[in-house]
Structures are given as C-alpha cells and as structure tokens.
C-alpha cells in the first residue's frame, strides 16, 4: 500500500512538474500577450492541481489533505479569473490585435 501511494504520488508530482516546465518554455517562446496568458493560466492551474493531488498521497492524516484540496480549489477559482481580466484588458486596449491573431467580433 505504501509503495502504491509512493508510485502514484510521484507520477502525479512529476506530471505536474513536466507541465510547469512546458509552461515556462512556452512563456518564453510565444511572442504575443494572449498566447502567453493562455500558457500561464492553463498550464499553471493544471500543474498546481497535479502537484497538490500528488502531495495528498504522501500525507497520512486528513488535515493536510483538506488543506491541499482547499488550495487547489482556490487556485482553480482565482487563476482563470485573473487571467481572464488581464486578457480582457489586452483585447480592449491593444490596437494591433489583428496582426497577432484572428479576431472575431465580440458579442
């Protein structure tokens, strides 16, 4: 059982770390603000969730598990919204948006 927990937890944590790495590379490779926000928001949320779930397997008492669950919930609530606000401002204020991506009329 302990070995099983160790393996599953490690798999989750390493998946999270891999996504974090991809996000970091993408943050430097992409050229436009919206692409970068996409990478930062999606990958960060997913990677943080994986790391939190992985760490849950390493704790035996329920206290840390609840705390990690709360942290994951909080990140999944706030991170997308923050990115949404930043990208909304970018769409509203950037005048050269057509050069960067295909623009459809906002409703």
């Amino acid at each position: 059982m302990e070995l099983f927990k160790l393996i599953v937890g490690s798999v989750f944590i390493f998946t999270g770390l891999f996504i974090f790495g991809v996000a970091t590379i993408g943050l430097f490779r992409f050229r436009y603000v919206l692409n970068r926000i996409h990478v930062a928001a999606k990958c960060d949320s997913l990677a943080a969730l994986f790391v939190c779930v992985g760490l849950m397997f390493f704790s035996s008492s329920p206290g840390p598990i609840i705390k990690l669950a709360v942290i994951a919930c909080f990140i999944w609530l706030t991170n997308p919204v923050a990115s949404h606000l930043v990208s909304k401002i970018e769409v509203e204020t950037n005048e050269n948006l057509e050069d960067e991506c295909k623009v459809e009329e906002l409703p």
Partner: peptide, 14 residues
C-alpha cells in the same frame, strides 16, 4: 465596479 461577471462571482466567493 468591474463589469466582468466571472470576476464578480469569484471575488464574491473569495
């Protein structure tokens, strides 16, 4: 306040 609905909902929760 801000006119974005998701932001209002999430800040209201948090």
């Amino acid at each position: 306040g801000v006119r974005s609905l998701p932001a209002r909902v999430v800040i209201g929760i948090a």
